[in-house]
């Protein structure tokens, strides 16, 4: 086919579309009929989900302010928001899972901007500007290999991110029985840090599942804080901080129940410091259950 100028392409398009319209059918009732059927199905699905959601509600609790549980579609509502409760694992609505997962991938402070701002902004620019990026006039998929590749890759990437986002670590995870794990999970640490071994999924600070931290670094951060992380030297005793730092040093950078690459750095103080610290710090996962 000879290359056409933009004007020729436009003329050809307009001639073709005018022809299709002339030999077409009336929007009402033909297209409206199909539209109505699909709309009714969609409304039916929404009502069906609402009824299924409602049918599995537990009875209204007698206590005020607590969750009314439900079935597979989730509770009617959770307990009243309480800013004082800090052990809650924040999870977005499912259609934000892909962003949530993106943030978990770019977890380290230097890369945080990539996940939180740069990639989402790029996506929005690509989305809005797509008609100006794809200048290929052909509409048949067999003539649009690049667009086809993009059209296949984008949903796969989004679905994969959504899938892993929905399985973010510690969502309902259990703390291991290692000394200090229960204190980590039950205390302030869990609000910000995801840590598979402790069963926590906070995503404000760096993930300790993915980053190995040495004993000295961990102790310094806990005691003195850094960036967004507060100093805990006023909250925890010396032994408690040693216990937490030792626990983090031995288990960070590894999956649940395994020793991390920095395990050796804490050998001298851990787990002895946890026993001295007592309470939740000495205990295993069982101690946190009563929390």
């Amino acid at each position: 086919m000879p290359r056409l100028t933009a004007r020729e392409r436009r003329d050809r398009y307009q001639r073709e579309y005018a022809f299709q319209k002339r030999h077409g059918k009336s929007f009402f009732p033909h297209a409206v009929f199909h539209d109505t059927i699909v709309s009714l199905i969609v409304v039916g699905i929404i009502m069906g989900m609402s009824v299924l959601w409602w049918a599995q509600f537990e009875p209204v609790p007698t206590e005020a302010g607590v969750e009314r549980a439900g079935g597979i579609l989730g509770p009617a509502y959770e307990g009243r928001a309480d800013p004082g409760v800090e052990e809650y694992d924040p999870k977005p609505e499912w259609y934000f899972f892909f962003l949530f997962e993106l943030l978990r991938i770019f977890k380290t402070p230097e890369l945080l901007l990539v996940g939180s701002v740069i990639i989402p902004t790029l996506w929005m620019v690509l989305l809005i500007g797509w008609p100006f990026i794809d200048r290929n006039p052909d509409r048949r998929l067999s003539r649009r290999p690049i667009a086809l590749a993009v059209g296949v890759c984008v949903p796969i990437v989004l679905l994969t991110l959504t899938f892993y986002g929905s399985k973010a670590p510690g969502a309902g995870g259990e703390a291991s029985t290692a000394p200090g794990a229960a204190a980590f999970a039950g205390g302030a640490c869990s609000t910000c840090h995801a840590f598979a071994d402790a069963g926590t999924a906070g995503n404000v600070g760096p993930s300790l599942t993915d980053n190995a931290v040495s004993y000295e670094t961990a102790y310094d951060l806990i005691a003195n804080g850094k960036g967004g992380m507060p100093a805990f030297s006023g909250t925890y005793s010396e032994d408690e901080m040693k216990c937490l730092a030792g626990y983090v040093a031995t288990h960070s950078g590894a999956p649940a129940g395994e020793e991390g690459p920095e395990a050796a750095t804490a050998a001298e103080v851990y787990p002895a410091a946890c026993e001295t610290a007592g309470g939740l710090f000495a205990g295993a996962g069982a101690a946190a259950a009563g929390d």
Binding site: H23, G24, S26, F27, H34, D35, S39
Partner: peptide, 24 residues
């Protein structure tokens, strides 16, 4: 003009999603 305009003869069921969105 909105209702009795012509549309191409071979439009598909996939092209009902926009109106379903308006309904939602």
């Amino acid at each position: 003009y909105m209702l009795f305009r012509n549309v191409p003869k071979d439009i598909s069921w996939l092209q009902t999603l926009g109106s379903a969105l308006l309904t939602v």
